[in-house]
Amino acid sequence: MKLYSKKAVIKALCFVCLGSSTLALADGRVVDKVYHPYVQPLERSFEYRYFYQRQADHPDNNAMGQKLGYGFSVAERAALEIYAIADRVSPEDYKLSGYELELRWMLTEQGQYSADWGMLFELERQNNQDNYEFTTGLLMEKEFGPTSLTLNALAVYEWGKTLDPEWESEFRAQYRYRWLPAVQPAIELYAGENYKGAGPSLMGVHKFDRQEQLKWELAVIVAIDNQTVDRTLRFALEYEF
């Protein structure tokens, strides 16, 4: 018996491509974590994220960013995470550029319906410019046999001293093959304001002891249009305990 259909996978991938070509995107960084819609009670974690983008003759050339976060579940289906954000745009050095508060809310149990759903709420303050960014949207994941498709459709509202208030949209997708716990290859796609990129990624999890595990993610995203900075490296580590 065939338990998942190739047609469904093709349909999903077509949807991803269609979505990326029709959405407009945001001023901020588009390449970031692709969120899964799951929350566990008693969840606690430290998280580190890093990105580096480079392309000669591009206005967003040679920018780097780091994020350090602490997260914990506040209810059976909701988790909060607080981040400090540091950015560096060459030739300047790193500076603490902002803070972010994030709430993830699991709407459905995994496997309960034909896809799993969650929501994301984020509030970011850019302290050097007194700008704010509020992000919210849907997180979805669907299993196709040994693979999983994760989609994030986000709406972003920006305002502040140096920003005209505006709504933007972001779209992130990840199609992952759950090969081994420690090694799970994937492809990722991002679309946002002045940004469309896609590329391979690799992720996994290593368990140390009871309740202790380290999750890692690495992705190289390349431009799929002329406006986008050509190469972005994304790396993340999450220690759960």
Binding site: A8, K11, A12, F15, Y113, S114, A115, W117, L138, M140, K142, L149, L151, A153
Partner: peptide
């Protein structure tokens, strides 16, 4: 996304 998630009856 909704197109992918018809309810399972």
């Amino acid at each position: 996304m909704l197109a992918l998630t018809l309810p399972v009856v």
